[in-house]
Structure formats: C-alpha cells, structure tokens
C-alpha cells in the first residue's frame, strides 16, 4: 500500500519554530480525512517529542510515514541521552532548567503524554550518543 513519507529537521533551543513539524503533520492528516480525535492524539504526542528535542537534545530529526491505517513517527536526536529511562517515564520527573520552566515546559509530562496518546511507544537511548523514540497511532 502506498504511503506518505515526510522528514523534518527540528532546530534546537528554538521555541518559536517548535511545533511546526507537528503542525504540518496535523494539517496533512486533516487533508487525508483522518478523524479529528486521532489527529489530536498524533499532534500532541509528536509536539511533546519535538519539544524534548528542542529542550534537551539541541534539535533532531522527525521522520513520519503515513499509511492507510496508521502513522509511524520516529524522533531521533544526537543529544546527551537518558541515563534512566524508567525515571524519565515517571509523570512529574523532569531535568528541565528554570529557563525552560518559564517557557511553560518542564512539567515532567513529555514522555508520559507521548505514551498515553499513542498506540505504540518505544524509546531507545544511550548516554553520550542520543535518543530515538518511535510512535505509532492507528486510525
């Protein structure tokens, strides 16, 4: 079955452009006629991933594949990595600085929201190498 492949570069430490990849994916799904409630789940999960790369990793790449029945999103960065993934997955745990908190982030809900709003969630991380998150949502 044919699919739609999209790739986005996410700039690090830039809150003005943050969310533009998620917004483009949202608009694409809307054009494809995907149900609004599903689109919202995808948009929120992907935006959280984008923000994580903006805040923690100096940016990264978002690779999106849209099929007839689902969307796959891979968020890949070469940031510092996560030493303890189970701790990072806990709601309320955050390593964000005060400056980031002033931006409205750092609630420790990023990864939990990504898991909550997707049907499949996978995370791989190596300290000093980077982090890759894979998400899938079925339509």
């Amino acid at each position: 079955m044919s699919s739609l492949h999209l790739e986005f570069d996410v700039a690090g430490n830039n809150f003005v452009s943050a969310g533009s990849a998620s917004n483009e994916v949202k608009l694409t799904l809307k054009k494809l006629g995907v149900e609004p409630a599903i689109i919202r789940k995808v948009a929120v999960a992907m935006y959280e991933g984008e923000i994580n790369m903006v805040i923690h990793a100096g940016g990264g790449k978002a690779i999106v594949d849209i099929f007839g029945d689902k969307i796959d999103i891979e968020l890949k960065d070469s940031g510092p990595g996560i030493a303890d993934i189970s701790l990072a997955m806990k709601e309320g745990y955050s390593t964000a600085t005060d400056t980031i908190r002033e931006q409205g982030f750092g609630a420790g809900m990023g990864l939990p929201n990504m898991k909550r709003y997707t049907d499949e969630f996978e995370i791989e991380s190596t300290v000093g190498v980077g982090t890759t998150v894979r998400l899938a949502v079925y339509f």
Binding site: F15, V16, A18, A37, R40, Y47, A107, N113
Partner: peptide, 23 residues
C-alpha cells in the same frame, strides 16, 4: 504548564492562562 494543557484541556474549550509566549 503546557504539557498538562495539551494532555487534559477539552477540545474547543476556553483556556485560561497567564503564559504569554509563542508556545
């Protein structure tokens, strides 16, 4: 806190906040 808003605010709601940046 934006992650709370994203995760919990109902669709088409009025969002009351004092956060005023691009996010």
């Amino acid at each position: 806190l934006l992650s709370f808003v994203m995760g919990r605010a109902p669709e088409k709601c009025a969002w009351f906040t004092i956060m005023n940046n691009a996010n």
